[in-house]
């Protein structure tokens, strides 16, 4: 086997493990940040600063009874969480995560393997990630339809409406930067913004950036738009009947999607992993992703939910026209 295949397999395993662990860590960070913003403490008793709460929650999830409702379609019911988790991780496969590096020869078995920056270096990375996230809507959709529960059905109806509508906005908002850069590859996006903070696309495309963030919130089911499982209205939406590990897989998928959107926002609009002054590139990317992740929690602590009709209003009457106008103006400017 050649060095790249081994390296790719190593990278796949690394991404799976790290992102799954980060999903757990993300819940901890979310609880802590929300707590601080509400003048509370958050998890504090299990381990130092409550850090082992993740382990406790993990053990709880793994050992909980796996309940499948009597009238549910058992096969689809157990398939749906897998779809959510799988599509989230497949989307991550086209995203640059760490710099490329070679494992030193001295190590047995895997010595000399080249671990690539991107697992699947397709030259249309942006579209691939968006497409995979679009396919991810089947998780909530099938989950809601298979569980023979009214709240589940409502949740999956909302899934279909919300994801379909906001896919349009995501696609259109990314189109303008694509026209500026002239490529669909995330590497080209990164290379187009190497000239320091001033060359970031966010200064050329501020409207596209804001639209992308809003649509990203909607596609990852984060708070101002988390109508899919809005407790006050539809119990838990599509996860109403889920328990234990299956529920946990939905969670991991959601957090993996949050990371994907954060990385996309950082790479497309905020200079990717280019160095900022003395800050090395990998740290810069990490800081940007952390900021976007924090922004999601921050917004959750600050803003209320919106109604479904407001969601549709926002998408079709505000965001989509804005995105189209932005594309037209960008097109004219690029042509000139």
């Amino acid at each position: 086997m050649d060095a790249l295949v081994v390296g790719t397999i190593i990278k796949i395993v690394l991404v799976l493990l790290i992102v799954s662990a980060l999903a757990g860590f993300g819940t901890y960070i979310e609880r802590k940040v929300l707590a601080f913003m509400q003048r509370r403490l958050g998890p504090a008793h299990v381990g130092p600063f409550g850090l082992l709460q993740i382990a406790a929650d993990g053990i709880k999830l793994f050992t909980k009874e796996d309940i499948i409702p009597q009238h549910a379609n058992k096969f689809i019911f157990s398939l749906a969480p897998v779809i959510t988790a799988a599509t989230a991780f497949i989307a991550l496969s086209a995203v640059p995560l760490f710099p490329t590096f070679v494992i030193p020869e001295s190590l047995p078995l895997i010595g000399g393997a080249i671990v690539p920056s991107i697992i699947a270096d397709v030259n249309i990375g942006v579209l691939f990630v968006l497409g995979m996230m679009a396919a991810g809507l089947y998780g909530p959709l099938l989950a809601g339809m298979a569980q023979a529960n009214k709240w589940g059905i409502l949740g999956s109806a909302r899934t279909a409406v919300q994801f379909l509508s906001y896919e349009v906005v995501t696609g259109l908002s990314v189109l303008a930067p694509i026209m500026v850069v002239g490529s669909l590859s995330l590497l080209d996006f990164n290379n187009a913004q190497t000239g320091g903070v001033g060359s970031w696309l966010i200064w050329q495309q501020p409207i596209a950036f804001i639209l992308f963030l809003i649509a990203g919130f909607a596609e990852t089911n984060r708070t101002p738009f988390d109508l899919l499982e809005h407790e006050a209205e539809i119990i838990s939406g599509y996860v109403t009947e889920y328990s234990g590990l299956r529920w946990g897989m939905f969670f991991i998928g959601e957090y993996a999607n949050m990371f994907t959107i954060s990385i996309l926002a950082a790479v497309i609009f905020c200079g990717g992993y280019g160095d900022i002054g003395f800050v090395p590139g990998w740290l810069a990317l990490l800081l940007k992703v952390t900021f976007f992740f924090f922004l999601m929690l921050w917004v959750r602590a600050s803003w209320p939910h919106i109604r479904p009709d407001q969601l549709m209003w926002l998408c079709w009457k505000v965001l989509m026209p804005l995105a189209v106008i932005n594309i037209v103006i960008t097109g004219i400017v690029v042509m000139i």
Binding site: V33, F36, M37, Q38, R39, R40, L41, W298, V299, A301, S302, W303
Partner: peptide, 21 residues
């Protein structure tokens, strides 16, 4: 404005002993 308020509360909680717990 909403974002600013929550951020202020967070800073207060973390560094100025504003916890209510």
């Amino acid at each position: 404005v909403g974002l600013w308020i929550t951020l202020k509360e967070m800073v207060k909680t973390l560094f100025m002993g504003g916890k209510h717990t």
